[in-house]
Structures are given as structure tokens and as C-alpha cells.
Amino acid sequence: MGRLRRLISRDLHRKCYACLLGWALILLPGITASAYTLDNITIVLSDEGTAYEEFANHLNSLLQPSNKTSVRLLSLKNMANDEFSRATANQLVIAVGTPAMVAMAQKPATNLVLNVLVPRATFIKTAKQYNRGQDQRRFSAVYMDQSWTRQLRLIRATMPTRPKVGILLGRESSDYIAALQTAAKEVDLNLNIETVIDDADLLSALRRLLNNSNVILAVPDAQIYNRNNIPSILLTSYRQQVPLFGFSASYVKAGALAAVYSSPAQVSQQVAEIIANLAPGGGLPTPQYPRYFSLNTNQQVARSLGISIESDNEIQRQLKQLSEPAQ
């Protein structure tokens, strides 16, 4: 137990919520810039370093643009106030991360904007707040979070005899309930959901959940799953012998049983394919979940909990065989 506590403190106290993604670099073949020539592709980074630059660098290596296409990298903090005030013919803006997405949502709705590495709930909230939800062909996204179906299928694949899934939701994630219930019905799992109003209710809600659930599924809600709360949630779940499924490789390293996630390189592969299929005068595809994904399990935690699970490759093979919803 002491080793697990030290592991959680070391791996999570020094990471913010936005960095809990556990990205892994993969090598993918190049893709031509587009079915027609874009005048300009601008990649706007929310911040320098970390996963954002990895995404941008890998995307640039995949695009292999023609001499007629300009690809530029722009940091949000260095972006001029009047940047993008005028539309450029055949321009595509790729906003990387939530701050870049919010900044582009406030710009004139003249350019195609594809938002990446953003949570689905945050994208929907931002599009609604800045009246960008009316035309998803011009303001779209590739989410950073996985579909509920894929996450619940991971639980079903690794723990077929534990059908009761506990989920903590906060103010930011309370809208997930209907989609979660639909996915649970499809996968034949039962959900127990507790809604947390404030931090004072967190542990009591978690304990109620643990008493009625076989597993816990973490969701991307910073109110609940932040660097202050995650160690307590993992330790409390572990003491109750209830495994937790995370949404990044960092969770697995810190004590979660398993997680399915998409790396920046995997997301960039999907974005490159979107760009390659753009048509003259056409718009972006509607917002979508990641197409490519990775999977990690923690065999040490599994042994400690007396759980036998298959290899990462075998579980991922099973998940890839199943179709996924686009939105």
C-alpha cells in the first residue's frame, strides 16, 4: 500500500489534468496535404511544449504539403489581436487544445476551424457559448476523449463477470448521463452514477459508489479528476478492492487497472486524413471521436486485486474488431 501511495504521489502530483494523457509516439505513413490545394494551414497551439507540439510536429510530417500550400505554426500567446480577422481563401485553422479553441471561437466565423485535443463536453459548451454550433462544417473537432462505447467495451473485455460500473459525475459532466446509459445498454453493463456537487461530497459519494459497483470508470471532468483528488480516489478504490479504469496512460502508471486513449500522433493521423479528403468549397466533417487508439493495463494492480486479464495486444485486437460511433 505504501508503494502504491508513493507511486501515485510521484506520478500525479506533478501533472495537471490537461497533461494526464500519457501520449506515446507512433510512426505513420505520410499523407498528401489535400485532394485540392489549400492556400494556408495554420496550426494554433494553446501552449508550447508537451503534447501540443508533438501533435503539430507529427501532423506536419504527415502532410507533405505542395509548394502552393503554406503551413505555419502559431503559439496562442504570440497571436496578434487581429489575427484571422480576414478570411483567406481555402484556409484551414487547426486549434490545438482548449485555450486555442476558445480563442478561435471568438474570431469571425470566416475560416474553417478544426479543434483537436479538446474534451467533447468542452467543445460543445464552447460552440454553444460563442454561437459556433450552428455550422459544424466550419467549426468542428476531433475529441481527445474516447467514446463511451469504447470505454465500456474495455471494461466488458477485461472484466466480463463484473457488470456493475460506478461513475462519478460533476457539474461539468452531468450531461453525460444519457449517452452513458445508451452505451451501457449496448454493451450490456449496469451503471451506478453519483453526482458530486462540491469537493466536500466527493469521498462520501465515492464510498457509496464503491459499495454498489464492481468497477469505477473515470471521466474527463476536472472538478473530480484533478491532481488534488486523484490520489484519494485511486487509494480509496484500491482499499475497497474495486479496480478503476482511467482515460490516460498516466492513470495506469499511477494505479488504475486499464485505460484506452489516443496519442497526439494518432490524432494527427486522423487530422491528416480529414485534410486529405477536403473538397473544394466543402466543409469539415462533423465532430468525431478519435479513430486510432492505444491501450494500457497494469498487470501489477491486476495481480494485487486477484484479477486475471489478457495482454494489451489481445484486448486492443478485440476492441478494434468492434465498430465505433463517429460522434
Results as ranks from 00 to 15, higher is better:
Ser173Arg: 01
Asn296Lys: 11
Arg291Lys: 12
Thr37Leu: 06
Val301Asp: 11
Gln134Val: 11
Gln151His: 01
Ile309Trp: 01
Asp11Gly: 09
Asn81Asp: 09
Tyr36Cys: 11
Ile41Pro: 02
Ser311Gly: 04
Asn313Phe: 05
Ala141His: 07
Glu314Leu: 14
Leu210His: 05
Ile274Glu: 00
Leu319Ser: 00
Gln318Arg: 14
Lys128Pro: 00
Asn131Cys: 04
Gln288Asn: 00
Ser61Asp: 07
Leu206Lys: 10
Leu168Val: 12
Arg86Phe: 10
Phe293Met: 06
Ile43Trp: 06
Met1Ala: 13
Glu273Tyr: 03
Lys107Asp: 08
Val260Ala: 01
Ser173Cys: 06
Leu319Met: 05
Ala222His: 09
Lys320Ser: 02
Ile8Ala: 01
Ala184Pro: 01
Gln129Arg: 15
Gly97Ile: 08
Leu38Phe: 13
Leu202Ile: 15
Val260Ser: 13
Ile8Pro: 00
Pro325Val: 11
Val116Lys: 00
Leu295Asn: 13
Leu76Lys: 03
Ile43Val: 12
Val44Ile: 13
Ala179Val: 10
Ser232Leu: 13
Ala256Phe: 00
Lys107Gln: 07
Ala200Ser: 15
Ile315Arg: 02
Leu21Ser: 13
Thr37Phe: 02
Tyr289Cys: 01
Val267Ala: 00
Tyr251Met: 07
Ala183Gln: 05
Gln181Asn: 13
Gly22Phe: 10
Arg6Ala: 14
Arg3Pro: 01
Ile224Met: 09
Val165Glu: 06
Ala80Glu: 13
Arg120Phe: 01
Ala127Met: 06
Val93Met: 00
Asp11Cys: 00
Leu206Glu: 10
Asn190Ser: 14
Ser9Ala: 15
Asn226Trp: 05
Gln288Met: 12
Gln288Thr: 09
Val102Glu: 07
Gln270Met: 06
Ala254Leu: 08
Asp175Met: 01
Gln240Ile: 06
Glu310Val: 12
Gln266Leu: 14
Val215Asp: 02
Ile307Val: 10
Asn190Gln: 15
